[in-house]
């Protein structure tokens, strides 16, 4: 599945909900299902502080594709992280670097990625893209 197909799949999954609370219940479920973050990785260099919630991000490159692990102290933030990871994990850095996360807007979650929201998510997306750009650089 391409990166864009994964976005469309998420949009489809959300399209069945017409009530906001149902949408958020699903986000919470996704957050609860997110692969647990290794406690040892909760280090200062991985933390992204927001004034509402905090996010931890670990990004790595295996020479071919990017790997992301992330966590948050807030479950809704964590649910959105789970969606971002689903879209971006195991993707080539070139694809990530040029990716436009249209699914966030289409699901109606744009407010969570607004830099003024200060929940750490906007900075997290920036860091994911930066890690991908650096990986592109590594490959030469």
């Amino acid at each position: 599945m391409t990166l864009n197909e994964k976005q469309i799949e998420l949009i489809d999954e959300f399209s069945i909900f017409d009530d906001w609370m149902d949408k958020y219940q699903y986000i919470i479920d996704l957050g609860n299902e997110l692969t647990p973050f290794d406690e040892a990785k909760r280090t200062k260099d991985r933390i992204i502080e927001g004034c509402q919630s905090q996010v931890w991000l670990d990004a790595s490159f295996d020479g071919n594709v990017m790997h992301f692990e992330a966590d948050s102290d807030a479950i809704i933030t964590k649910g959105i992280i789970a969606m971002l990871i689903r879209v971006l994990d195991n993707e080539k850095p070139e694809e990530i670097a040029k990716c436009d996360f249209h699914f966030i807007n289409e699901i109606g979650l744009y407010e969570h990625l607004s830099p003024t929201r200060s929940n750490g998510l906007a900075s997290m997306v920036k860091k994911m893209k930066m890690a991908a750009l650096m990986a592109v650089g590594q490959k030469g």
């Binding site: 479950i75 809704i76 933030t77």
Partner: peptide, 13 residues
């Protein structure tokens, strides 16, 4: 329950 989560779910209501 994190305050941010509570605030978000109250907002949606």
């Amino acid at each position: 329950a994190h305050p941010f989560d509570i605030g978000t779910l109250l907002d949606k209501q």
